[in-house]
């Protein structure tokens, strides 16, 4: 666990550094790919800004809904107390949903069709996500269940005494594999048009299975599955419905 590093005499938080690195790399790659395909880079940059802004907002909102009492948070905000906003975490699925809504907003603002940018942008999302998970590893959050195995990692500063499965690193590795797979699919004419549902379905499978290895109890649960698992199921089924409808109309 390495929450901070010291660089040029400054204390740099690793989680934020990893997230910023992921954002810059994935956005830069998306813009480069769009430019290579003849797309309007300025419009895409505005869309990416909408995606990132709404994504961060969505990630924060879902965390507050799942892990805090929403009424208490609203009361605090009404008093001008932003502690809940400052000290609470983020949920990736909230970011994903917020990002999709942000993309729609960006499309409205710029007046361009989002379909033309999907193949350039979607493969870059798991790349940024992988860096975010590295940040989780350094911060000591989103850890797995306790284990006696050789892969166990200690996070003493996070108040965890036992060795736990490093699910952050596992998910980061799987996201990188997904990134490479999506790059390959984006180059195939028969799979390019469905790159977004392919990504959503692939990540839903990854997340659903990884949740069984997770050990941080703060994430929300409903019935016998975690909130993220329920979202994974809904996302997977929704994408199947979407792809079958598109196939029928084609």
């Amino acid at each position: 666990m390495l929450p901070y590093i010291h660089l040029f005499g400054k204390v740099i938080p690793m989680y934020g550094l990893c997230m910023a690195t992921g954002l810059l790399l994935s956005s830069g790659l998306a813009l480069w790919r769009a430019r290579a395909e003849g797309g309007d880079v300025n419009s895409l940059l505005a869309i990416i800004a909408c995606i990132v802004g709404c994504g961060i907002g969505g990630a924060k909102l879902l965390y507050l809904l799942v892990s805090c009492d929403p009424r208490e948070v609203l009361r605090e905000l009404a008093r001008g107390d932003f502690t809940a906003l400052a000290n609470s975490g983020f949920v990736f699925y909230g970011g994903l949903i917020g990002g999709l809504l942000g993309a729609l907003l960006g499309g409205r603002i710029t007046g361009v069709s989002l379909r033309q940018y999907c193949a350039a942008v979607v493969p870059c999302v798991p790349l940024g996500h992988a860096f975010g998970r590295l940040g989780c590893f350094f911060a000591g959050c989103c850890y797995g269940r306790a284990t006696d195995g050789p892969l166990g990692v200690h996070f003493p500063a996070a108040g965890i005494d036992e060795a736990v499965i490093p699910t952050q690193l596992i998910e980061a590795g799987l996201n990188l594999c997904l990134f490479l797979l999506l790059l390959r699919w984006a180059d195939q004419s028969d799979r390019r048009a469905t790159i977004l549902p392919r990504y959503l379905m692939s990540y839903a499978i990854i997340r659903f299975l990884l949740e069984f290895l997770r050990g941080d109890e703060i994430r929300g649960f409903f019935a016998f599955l975690s909130v993220s698992q329920w979202i994974s199921v809904a996302l997977f089924l929704g994408c199947i419905l979407w792809m079958s409808r598109n196939r029928r109309s084609a």
């Binding site: 400052a86 975490g89 949920v91 998970r133 941080d216």
Partner: peptide, 17 residues
């Protein structure tokens, strides 16, 4: 980073969940 670190170090965990 502050949000994530506060959430992790205070035992509340669940930064990028």
């Amino acid at each position: 980073a502050c949000a994530g670190a506060c959430a992790a170090l205070s035992g509340a965990a669940g930064s990028l969940s």
